[in-house]
Amino acid sequence: MEEEDVELFENEMLSSEDSCREAQEAGKSMLEKIMRHLRWIDAHIDVGAELLERLQPPADGKISIRWARRSGRIVPQPVMWKITKIGKQGIKKGAPNWRYERLGLDRLVNKLRKTKGFEDTHEETKLVMGMVVDLLERRRQIMPRIYDNNRIAATTIFGHEDPVTNIALQLNRLNRTIPERKWEVILAQHEERIATKKAAAKAAAKAAVIAAAKKAMAPT
């Protein structure tokens, strides 16, 4: 190989190394950007999860967002809480036992309870849950692409920054305005109203029976 050819070959090698280094740096930069975006989404999923805790009573049917391990990763998982008074041996216990059922994102908003203490905050809960589901879905779409640093993946992820920003702004505003609720007091008042209605209905039914009996016994 001539000296001129050797120099040309070495220059090409150096150029290739520079290109590889630049690509690696670009890939690293893009991965860091994706991770920052993911952390930002996770932070606002937490805001939404806190609002859901604030908006729903600690009662059967409550839906929460829990961080759970799945396939070696910690991921946000919607769950519905259930109450059972049956122990492991089938013996009824005095205090309720809590368990939860994992839920998917499909029609999650429609699974929110709207009765038995949930009705007063149902509309706000629907609003928050809708935004949380949106963030969870965006997170789910990002995860398979997290190590794919090409331009298409970046466009797919960061092409939706404005909607995510709007969701974050709404959640932060609600977090400032929605108060903490004393659910024990609210639920007690709710049960008292139900008991009053039942007692009134029972009294009315009894009065109707007495009235019917008197009418039947009256001389014609």
Rank of each mutant, 00 (worst) to 15 (best):
I91A: 11
K197H: 15
E119R: 11
F9M: 11
K33F: 12
P179W: 01
V185C: 06
T165D: 11
L52P: 00
G61M: 06
Y100H: 13
L187V: 07
K93G: 03
Q24C: 14
K215T: 06
K126W: 10
I178T: 08
A26I: 07
D106V: 09
E192I: 04
F158W: 03
K28G: 15
R99S: 15
G94N: 09
M13I: 07
A26R: 15
E10M: 11
A208P: 07
R54A: 00
R151H: 03
Q141E: 11
T115Q: 12
G72C: 05
R138D: 04
A43R: 07
K215H: 06
I45Y: 02
G104L: 13
H44L: 01
E119D: 06
D60E: 02
L31V: 06
D5H: 04
L136V: 09
A212E: 04
I178E: 08
V209D: 12
D46Q: 10
R66D: 06
K206W: 11
P76F: 07
R39Q: 14
H160G: 02
N97D: 01
E101C: 14
R107D: 10
L169H: 14
A68K: 15
G159Y: 08
V6Y: 08
A205F: 11
K114T: 12
L135F: 02
K114V: 05
R21G: 15
S16P: 03
E124P: 02
L55W: 00
V47I: 02
M1C: 13
F9N: 10
L105W: 12
M35V: 05
R181I: 04
A23D: 05
L187E: 11
W40P: 05
G159C: 12
A153N: 05
E53P: 07
G117A: 09
V79T: 03
E192P: 10
L52N: 03
M30S: 08
G130V: 01
V128W: 10
A188C: 04
K82G: 14
R193C: 05
K85H: 09
A68H: 02
S19N: 05
K198L: 13
E124D: 14
I34T: 04
E137I: 00
R39I: 07
I83P: 13
E2N: 15
N11V: 14
G61T: 03
Q24P: 04
R151S: 08
